[in-house]
Amino acid sequence: MTAHLDNHTVPSWDLFRKFTIEKRIAFFALDRHPVHILYARQFTRTFLDELYILTNKIRLIAKTNHGKSWLSTLLENRRVMLYFAQPSTRTFLSFATACETMGMRFYDVRSLETSSEMKGETFEDTIRTFSSYFDLVILRHATPNYAEHAAIVLNRSRRPIPLINAGSSKDEHPTQALLDIFTLRKSFEKLGGLSRKTVMLVGDLKRGRTVRSLAVLLAQFAPIHIIFCAPKELAIDDEIIAFLKDHNVTCTQTTDFEANLPKTDAVYMTRTQSEYTDAKSLASSSKAYHTAAYTLTQKHLNHLKPNSIIMHPLPRKNEIAREIDNDPRAMYWRQVRNGMWTRCALIAKIFNIEKKILDH
């Protein structure tokens, strides 16, 4: 049964920000109302299994025009704000098409320059304004902890509505992790499943929010092995390694990309997160990263297993050669498509219409 929060019991942001990550996740448990999607650690294996089934069902229904029309009636009286104060192509369009697929009318603010925050309005007032007009906020922002702060503001208001974190600084990208897990499960569905596989995460692991969120979700499929491959300057945080070891995930940290390719079932490439660095540190990190040592080229394909897959959250720079795009193991364009369906399913769960879809 969903528990409704009394806004008098919601802590202030100054108090909440002092909570441990475990206490924060418990506070935003997915059985509470409103449902806020903020962290990858919110998702249990049961939730992931349910979302996988629901995503596949929505994809199946949408294969016919009749099914598409039916889906578009499910949330036709709901409105969504897409507040993207950080550049985005795929995440924005994925959510926009997901909302449209489910019949929701969406509106967007895609730059702080068009927001009243440029006039000095506090972001708390901006978020509360959204809650006056909309039934869901989908938020991307470069400021750390912005999504959590916005969720607290909403829960302390008289009209608390759900919020989805569509990318928060270097911290989290939980819905990207959901679509990545869906892609991995779909790819290995007839090959024994995702458990006991080896996944190699490559590139800027220190500042890449997609790999942080994905690594956390991979723990739900333990036993599993993760190889973290990056220059020492861009290695994954010790906190993520500790979390994974506590959850029966074996980890290897290496700087040797080519030597580990034959061991992997899935290789997940990432770009340099240059937007989070100053010019001096960018020069050194880019020099370390943009070399053949961390670029997947056609010559590497023979080192990969025949049934392995190649993934990338996109956008890419030069870390995957374009000649690889048509290799049957290249799944990054499939990831793009899967993102729309996964987000359709997530929205359906937030608005509690899962059973209606599964019974269709």
Rank of each mutant, 00 (worst) to 15 (best):
H141K: 10
P174N: 10
I161N: 00
L136R: 07
F134D: 04
M200V: 12
L154K: 00
L139D: 00
L163M: 01
L179K: 05
T129L: 12
V199K: 00
I138E: 03
Y146L: 14
I127T: 05
R158G: 12
T175N: 01
D135R: 02
A166S: 11
P162M: 07
Y133Q: 02
I164F: 06
M200Y: 10
E172Q: 15
E172L: 08
L154N: 08
L194T: 11
K197F: 07
L179H: 04
L178K: 08
L201I: 14
V137A: 03
L194P: 10
S157K: 06
G192N: 09
L179Y: 10
R140F: 04
L184P: 05
F182H: 15
K186G: 02
L201N: 11
S187E: 14
S157A: 11
L184R: 12
T198I: 13
K190D: 15
N165K: 08
S187A: 15
L194N: 11
S157D: 03
L194W: 09
E189F: 10
F182D: 06
S169F: 13
D135Q: 04
A166P: 02
A150W: 06
P162E: 08
H141F: 00
R140D: 01
P162Q: 09
D135N: 14
I181A: 05
L136T: 06
S131N: 02
A177G: 14
T129M: 15
D180I: 13
